[in-house]
Design a protein around this nucleic acid. Structure first.
Lengths: 157, 157
DNA sequence: AGAAATTAATCAGTGCACTGACTATCTGTG
DNA sequence: CACAGATAGTCAGTGCACTGATTAATTTCT
């Protein structure tokens, strides 16, 4: 007995939301380029020449994952990376002309997809939804990089 | 030039929300048992003897993923599966005593974790947040199984 | 200048997630 | 009863995500 209702668990709903998004993305945006990959292209559109780690920060991909995503984009010829002459640890990333083209094409499609995705909500609800998503995500992000020593719950009180 | 703001993209925020949840889960609930694994234990707590596919439906895991998750839970001794004598295609799943014990322990911790996760929102905001998450996810789910107005189509409001 | 600490990136290992192909079993209709 | 279609589960392949260990380059602190 004592089973809980997963529909009241934000973590479960977060996973379902991502599944829903994945479904719409692959049908309405692209089967080749994924949403995180688009995020990388987008970051390098506004800030060309960023290093790998900083791009990861911009699109919320950790150092291991950003390496894989960048690798795939390079293999597809959408990106290239060169060692930073000023700091030999870094690789600087730039979009190729093809990368620019793909980003532009997908930007239009993602806009349409976002509309469909949020269509079940009214305009005001959509705004609230995005704000709440941001607030919860940002708050947890603070825990990862604690600005202050966080009140870590006592294990067995 | 034409870069978009990912903070307005629900898909990006959904991914960030899941990352946030993962962080809290591993620190506050368990490093061994994952959230989807808990979902499976929970489903079998309320409905023991379900077959694999149905459990997958309950916790939103597709047929491939549920197979892997179930495999891990069996390896950990929290679950066992037996062929359905009435239908040789199916495996029926049951919690082991250890599985019951783990589910009970984690249930308490997930409740605490959910509180922390949603703490940045007021009580009313939390309710709104969960409702909006459900509505968007459910709507996209309709697209997967093309809507057919059936009598019992609205199982759960 | 030289040792110590920091930082960027890689690698190995584990787990979730989806698709498409395949096997085995069951069901419905003629 | 037989066979076509549906269903449960597996398997191979790809991609995201996190951790911990390692390597190489840079910065900081004596």
């Amino acid at each position: 007995m004592a089973a809980v209702d997963l529909a009241t668990h934000p973590g479960h709903l977060a996973r379902r939301l991502q599944q829903a998004h994945h479904l719409l993305w692959t049908t309405m945006v692209s089967e080749e380029i994924t949403s995180p990959q688009f995020g990388v292209l987008n970051a390098l559109t506004s800030e060309p020449g960023l290093d790998q780690r900083t791009v990861g920060d911009r699109v919320a991909l950790d150092r291991s994952t950003i390496a894989e995503v960048v690798g795939r984009l390079i293999r597809r010829g959408l990106l290239d990376k060169v060692r930073d002459p000023a700091d030999g640890r870094r690789f600087l990333l730039h979009l190729t002309p093809e990368g620019v083209r793909v980003h532009r094409k997908l930007t239009v499609r993602t806009a349409r997809m976002n509309q469909v995705f949020l269509a079940p909500l009214s305009a005001e609800e959509q705004a609230v939804f995005l704000t709440l998503l941001r607030r919860v995500s940002d708050a947890a992000e603070q825990l990862r990089h604690p600005a202050e020593p966080l009140p870590h719950a006592d294990e067995n009180r």
